[in-house]
Simulated assay, not measured.
Amino acid sequence: MLARIDVHQHMIPPDYRAALERAEISAPGGRELPDWSPDAALALMDSTGIATAILSVSTPGTAFLSDPGEAASLARAVNDYSATLAAENTGRFGFFATIPLPDVTAAVTEAAYALDDLHADGVVLLANADGTYLGTDGQDALFAALDDRGAVVFIHPAELPAPPVPGIPPFAADFLLDTTRAAYLLVRNGIRRRYPNIRFILSHAGGFVPYASHRMAATIMSETGRDPGEVLADFAGFYFDTALSSSPAALPSLLAFAEPGHILFGSDWPFAPEQGVRYFAAGLDTYPTLLADDAGINRSNALTLFPRFEAVSATRAAR
């Protein structure tokens, strides 16, 4: 039996759903808010060979709340819930802590609490929080706190800080650009070099990063004078998940570009329905010349980031 570690699976805690409903947000990112429960997550995992899921809250995070205090309180409630859920389902669930950006001071406080006290498996940061992108000026205190802890940072896209184009749901195309923008700034502005202990995961195979990497490296070289090979190494050194991306069109670029061991399994459930999870998982496992297990994509690559799940993964794989 497979024993996948899913680094891109979402949760919708009760307090978080209630906060979205109060704000009249029913379709974040253009996708209707799906039903979710821990039991439904475990059933999906058992039927698709997922031993462990690292859960996270998707867009809009807490950025839809204009009051910084309310955003921080909601992040705390979500993280406390997540820690309890993980403790009650040892080995099956981990979690990326929700961080209340764009307030950097509050974000540092919550990151320290979640990582030090709750023992979160990392943090989830939106590519942009209310229009403020990762990698822009003023975020060094947060990156320093994460670097000090050798944190895993899961970067998830949000809606672009611009009106959507009629007929194009944000999740269909804008999300990929949003991730790419954040990755570009993290490389261009030297965050990847200054904070080398942070392990960044880019959602959805990195958006457009593998495909556009050489073009972006040439641009950064012209702007900064940096060596293009160094810039490309910074881009290739991200981790990349396969959520909605393990297709014959996307996989060749990702496999050719990412550093060995830097591709991780992702499902995007429940925003991706079970049929979609199965479709892309099959694309990963049947891709010519690729054995997902041998390449470490299903679990061993993730174990370098989350070694605490090795026992449960090995046990389920042996069944």
Score class of each variant (00 low, 15 high):
Ala183Cys: 12
Thr242Ala: 09
Ile168Leu: 15
Arg192Cys: 03
Ala205Lys: 04
Ala158Met: 03
Phe175His: 06
Phe208Ile: 06
Glu159Arg: 03
Gly206Pro: 07
Asp241Val: 00
Ser246Val: 00
Ser222Gln: 14
Pro169Trp: 01
Glu159Tyr: 00
Asp241Gly: 10
Ala243Trp: 09
Ile220Lys: 03
Ile220Val: 15
Ala162Val: 14
Pro157Thr: 02
Ala217Gln: 10
Leu244Asp: 02
Ser222Thr: 12
Arg188Lys: 15
Pro210Asp: 09
Pro210His: 08
Ala162Phe: 13
Gly229Val: 02
Leu185Asn: 05
Ala236His: 06
Arg226Phe: 07
Ala162His: 08
Arg188His: 15
Tyr195Arg: 01
Val231Tyr: 12
Ala172Arg: 05
Pro248Gln: 08
Thr180Pro: 12
Leu177Phe: 14
Tyr184Trp: 02
Pro170Arg: 07
Ser222Asp: 15
Leu160Asn: 10
Arg215Glu: 13
Ile201Val: 13
Ala205His: 01
Leu177Cys: 04
Arg199Cys: 05
Met216Ile: 13
Ile201Glu: 07
Tyr184Ser: 15
Thr179Asn: 07
Arg181Gln: 12
Thr179Ala: 10
Val165Tyr: 11
Val231Met: 10
Pro157Gly: 12
Arg226Pro: 00
Ala182Glu: 07
Arg181Thr: 12
Glu159Phe: 01
His204Asn: 05
Gly237Tyr: 09
Ala158Thr: 10
Gly207Leu: 10
Pro228Asn: 06
Thr242His: 04
Gly207Trp: 04
Thr224Ile: 02
Ala217Phe: 13
His204Met: 10
Phe175Ala: 02
Pro170Glu: 08
Leu202Gln: 07
Arg194Gln: 13
Ala205Phe: 05
Ser245Val: 00
Arg215Phe: 12
Asp227Lys: 05
His204Gln: 11
Glu230Asn: 06
Pro228Glu: 13
Pro163Tyr: 09
Ala158Val: 00
Pro161Glu: 04
Asn189Leu: 02
Leu186Asp: 09
Thr242Lys: 07
Leu185Glu: 05
Glu230Ser: 13
Leu185Gly: 04
Phe175Tyr: 15
Val187Thr: 10
Arg226Ser: 15
Ala217Arg: 03
Phe240Cys: 06
Ile201Ser: 06
Ala182Ile: 06
Leu176Trp: 06
Arg188Pro: 00
Gly206Met: 04
Arg192Ala: 11
Asn189Gln: 10
Leu160Cys: 06
Gly207Asp: 13
Ile155Ser: 02
Met216Ser: 06
Gly206Asn: 03
Ser203Met: 06
Leu177Ala: 13
Pro210Phe: 12
Asp174Phe: 05
Pro169His: 08
His214Pro: 00
Val209Pro: 00
His204Pro: 04
Phe171Val: 08
Ala236Ser: 15
Arg194Gly: 02
Arg215Gln: 15
Ile168Val: 15
Arg199Tyr: 01
Leu176Pro: 00
Ile201Gln: 05
Ala218Lys: 08
Pro166Val: 07
Ser247Asp: 13
Phe171Ala: 12
